[in-house]
Structure formats: structure tokens, C-alpha cells
Design a protein around this nucleic acid. Structure first.
Lengths: 232, 232
DNA sequence: TCAAAAGTGTTGCATCTACACCCATGG
DNA sequence: CCATGGGTGTAGATGCAACACTTTTGA
């Protein structure tokens, strides 16, 4: 069954992941229409269904691509340039997948943080496959997705410092050094170890475990987890 | 000439003004369809035209209602509940003005600050008239506009402190006490006069004039203006 | 015993808060 | 000369940045 879609309205999702070394973003490789076309990457997104909430649509797109369900997606901006999907580079592909490929499309953009281990990227109706790509090495994207990705990164950075989000990118048990590395990567600057620890020890829901790192050839670190239920 | 509109997409504008005493928001009174219906207020908004940028649409709505042109409107959130325009209270009115009144409508919300003196509210195609209403005394609004207004207020508060916006609400020449009163009103708390002055004197583009208040029965205050060109 | 990362406190500086009196004007 | 809001500084508390050494483990 094909559900009915609003021809002018889509959601796009910027899904960040972290492998311990690099901040990555989940991109789809657009299905190749003909051999002449070179492959183009894009953010996962889709038209919104006729009776679907925006948040629901974003979750659906995320689920279709990653099998991840019920995580928080932050809506950060709507992009509505009337020609944002009308560049030459995008029209062939749109003609192959859309019922009304000439329509202008407004998109509502969401971002989300996931544990990269939880995701087994897979193909979908629109995409040959999905791929985790280092945010510092993202090729030019379809539509205005470069711009959307940049906005997402900015928003992520500012929420990382103001709201101390970011635990979602780490494995369930992590060390403070891992957390610090993640912050350094996202903010693109070195942080002082002692000051970092002082500042994050203030935040709630960060719980030390009775457990240490194993299998490292140096002093094993205390493991922590992020526990939203913890009162502290 | 009637321009073609996208049936599922609108913009709504939360326009704040300040009269020296109260923070106000510009609302439209929906045209009365029949004598039975009670008047309902709503945020100014309209469907987006088929080739119109979102920002452009917001500016058009603002202009149609206030004759104000070319001011900055901040997009803050898209609202896309599929039933947000389908409550009983709103359906009669929609049937009277919309070509497709049963369609679900996603709206992109903007907020803006204007000098209340510059606005001569007037009627429009949809509204009997427009009215400045104290934000603390806003009646229940059409659609989900209460929620939109609340989000706008929150965003305005946070940008007032982080970005020191707010001058747009004052007359071109103002005293520091007027600026302080505005901040106190928006943030809903008393501020210390000396500390307030210290903090705002750090911000750029605030320029003391060679001019003082007149016509007051106390020591006349220094006048300032906000001058975005000033380097300082 | 060596290498590698974990872990831990203090000091100076900048920022924020609290607080009270004199000044200029109009009536 | 009185009432009214305008205008100003300081001291204490708090928060942030800089900085170096000891510990624990595996190899």
C-alpha cells in the first residue's frame, strides 16, 4: 500500500553518529537512474504523509533507514527556498521517484544523535544504500542539503554546551575521556581535562558505575552511564 | 489578481510591540461569518504562495497587516499537527475563506519586534480588524495559536538575553530606564539599575546622543539610540 | 621498568550580585 | 523646597582558565 503524500512538504533528518574517533552523519546514496549520472549523496528525507505529524514523519524516515525507533529528534529549521529542489543536478533523480517532480518542496529539518553501534544501515526505496560519512569529509550533497547539514551542526554545537546533550552518541557505558573526546571533536577545540571533569560533574543523570575499563594497556578508567532516572 | 497558494502550507507571524508599559502582540479578529459565532482572535498568517520563499511570505503577511516592510522576522518553529486546523471552533471560519478548508495545514512560525508607533493596524481580507493586545491578557486563540505564541515568547526571552535584541520595540531615541523596563517586562523580573547599566554598556551599537529627555518633572535622562553602523 | 592514559587541587582573574546616596528638574 | 526618577562605585562571592604530578595497568 502506498500512502498518500503532500507533494510540497518533506522532512529531512540529520543523524549524527560517533565511532570513537570521528563524528559521522548518515547519508543516503541516491539510486542511480542511468550510468551517466554520477552518484549523489543526500540527507535521508521524504515527503510527509497526508495525515502524519511532522515529528512522526521524521521518526518514520529515521526508522526506515536505520531501524531505530522512538528516539528524540529535534526540529531545528524549515527550509523553503522556492527553487531549492529545482537545480539541474537534482531533477533527473526527482523525476524518477516523485509523482510531481516539478513541485517546489518545503522541508522541515530535524537532527538526532544515535549510537552508531545500534545502526545497521540499509537501503530503502530511494537509496541504493546508506552510509556513515565523516562530517569533515562530506561531499557536495543534493538539493540544499549542505546548508541543512551546516545548520544542524551549528545547532548541535550550541545544544552540546548549553544542554549537555551528546550521551546518545556514546556506548551505554563510557569513560570521561571518551566523553571529553566527543566534546572536543564537536566543538573542534582542545579542552582541559580537569576543567572538563569539574564542569560535567555538575550535570545530573551522570552515574559512575562499579566497573572499570578492561583490555587497555594503561590504567583502566572508571565507567559511567547516562541515567535519566537518576536523581543524584 | 488572486495568486495561487499551496493548500497545506502557511506562515504565521507573532509580532510584538511595546507601548512603554505593556508588551503587546498584534492579533487579527477573524471576520464574523454569522451572528451566532463569537469573534475569535488569531495570529496574522496566510497560506504560502506557490513560488514564494517562506521569509517572503512572512514579510508579505506582516506588510499586509501593518504596512511595515523589510524588517527582520525570525523563523522559530514549524507546527505540523495534522489536526491543528480541524477543531470545531475553527472550521466555519476556514470554510468561509479557504478554497480547500478541510486540508491539514502545516505552518511555519516567525516572530518579529516592531515599534508600536510605526503601526497603524488595519483590516485585511481575512480580518475585521487588527488589534494590539497585552500578551498577559490574550484570549484563547484560533487553531494552535496559543501554543505558537508561547513558543515565540520563550524564544524572544532567550534571544533578549543572549543576543540583546529588543531595541526595535523602543522609539528611535530612548532612555536606559525605558530599555530596562522593557527587559523587566519581557523577563518578568526586577533588574538592578546599576548592574543593568553595566551589562548593557558592553554591547555594541548603543550610542548616547547629545540630547536629553524633555517635559518630565524630574531630572531628565540621557537619550540613546541603537545605531547598527556604529563601531564604538 | 616503561609507556600510556587516568585521575586529582589550587591560584589568579574576570564576572556577577548586592547595595545607598547625591543630582537635576518641574511644580 | 519637595517629589521624582536619573545617575554613579565598591566589596564580596562566584565562576572560569591555567597549570603538573602521581597512579594503575599491560607489555
Amino acid at each position: 500500500m502506498v500512502s498518500q503524500k503532500i507533494p510540497n512538504l518533506s522532512v529531512d533528518c540529520v543523524i549524527f553518529g560517533y565511532n570513537g574517533k570521528e563524528l559521522k552523519v548518515l547519508l543516503i546514496e541516491q539510486k542511480k537512474i542511468s550510468e551517466q549520472l554520477k552518484t549523489q549523496y543526500a540527507l535521508p528525507g521524504d515527503l510527509v504523509e497526508i495525515d502524519e505529524d511532522l515529528d512522526e514523519a521524521a521518526n518514520r524516515v529515521l526508522f526506515e533507514l536505520t531501524n531505530i525507533k522512538d528516539i528524540y529528534l529535534e526540529q531545528f529549521q524549515a527550509f523553503g527556498n522556492p527553487v531549492r529542489v529545482k537545480e539541474q543536478k537534482d531533477s533527473d533523480w526527482l523525476r524518477s521517484i516523485r509523482e510531481f517532480p516539478e513541485e517546489r518542496v518545503i522541508t522541515v529539518a530535524y537532527y538526532s544523535l544515535v549510537n552508531i553501534e545500534d545502526v545497521a544501515p540499509k537501503g530503502s526505496a530511494f537509496a541504493d544504500h546508506t552510509e556513515w560519512i565523516n562530517v569533515k569529509k562530506v561531499p557536495p550533497l543534493a538539493f540544499d542539503h549542505d546548508q541543512i547539514l551546516n545548520h544542524a551542526l551549528q545547532r548541535f554545537r550550541s545544544e552540546l554546551v548549553t544542554k549537555n546533550i551528546g550521551f546518545e552518541l556514546l556506548p551505554p557505558k563510557f569513560t570521561l575521556s571518551q566523553l571529553q573526546q566527543l566534546h572536543e571533536l564537536v566543538l573542534d577545540k582542545k579542552l582541559d581535562k580537569r576543567n572538563f571533569r569539574k564542569s560535567i560533574k555538575k550535570i545530573d543523570h551522570l552515574e559512575p558505575l562499579d566497573e572499570k575499563q578492561t583490555g587497555v594497556d594503561h590504567k583502566p578508567a572508571q565507567l559511567y552511564r547516562f541515567n535519566p532516572k537518576k536523581e543524584d
